[in-house]
């Protein structure tokens, strides 16, 4: 597999949210606006790259039976580091994302990639895989956030273009499910067309 295809497969072919359906909790919980979705996506990407690279380094030394617990501890450490950094330098974004930042630990994508890819590949490839998966995740979150923001509050990336309220349900909980459903349908159509 070429280096480029390792990165790009995460964006369309194996998109973690729209195809593999991993990490749905932050997807639904944080996408009330495009900015929030993007922030969450980038925080997860940072954790993915760091943990993938580190795990591929140590995978050979870990006894098989304690593999998962060891990976989780490593991931939890990186998540807490990202959390501190966000708290220090992006306090307002941290405040909006709240609980979902520490919960990156239990995002299935991170552990899933550690287990399925990083433990079997070299450091560079694992880092690239983390980058690709992270970008795929970020794209999906940003798109979902954008759709919900446009429909729900009549603005895009915080710039209002409609006076008054949008279709409120889309910023509320039910809208998250419905918007994701429709995006998935469109994505599947698009994917089956190109292949």
């Amino acid at each position: 597999m070429s280096k480029l295809s390792i990165v790009t497969k995460g964006i369309i072919k194996e998109n973690p949210i729209l195809v593999l359906l991993l990490g749905t909790c932050p997807t639904l919980g944080t996408t009330t606006s495009a900015i929030n979705g993007m922030g969450m996506g980038l925080a997860t990407t940072a954790v993915l790259i760091l943990s993938n690279m580190f795990i591929s380094m140590i995978a050979g030394y870990i006894p098989a039976k304690v593999r998962i617990p060891s990976y989780i501890v490593v991931i939890a450490a990186f998540v807490t580091i990202v959390q501190f950094i966000m708290q220090a330098y992006m306090p307002s974004l941290y405040a909006t994302l709240g609980l979902f930042i520490p919960l990156i630990v239990v995002n299935c994508i991170v552990l899933g990639r550690a287990e399925a890819f990083a433990s079997k590949n070299n450091v560079l490839d694992s880092g690239l895989d983390g980058l690709g998966m992270g970008l795929g995740f970020t794209c999906a979150l940003t798109v979902l956030g954008l759709v919900r923001e446009i429909l729900g509050s009549g603005s895009a990336f915080g710039h209002k273009f409609i006076d008054g309220d949008g279709i409120l349900i889309f910023v509320l909980a039910p809208g998250a499910f419905i918007a994701l459903a429709y995006i998935m349908v469109l994505f599947n159509k698009f994917k089956s067309k190109i292949s």
Binding site: L172, A176, A181, M184, V185, N188
Partner: peptide
């Protein structure tokens, strides 16, 4: 066809969430 599986489940979940609201 294109709603089969997860998408229709998500729409259902959305309706259930509306009820819980």
């Amino acid at each position: 066809e294109s709603f089969k599986g997860i998408p229709i489940a998500l729409v259902t979940a959305g309706i259930l969430a509306t009820a819980f609201m």
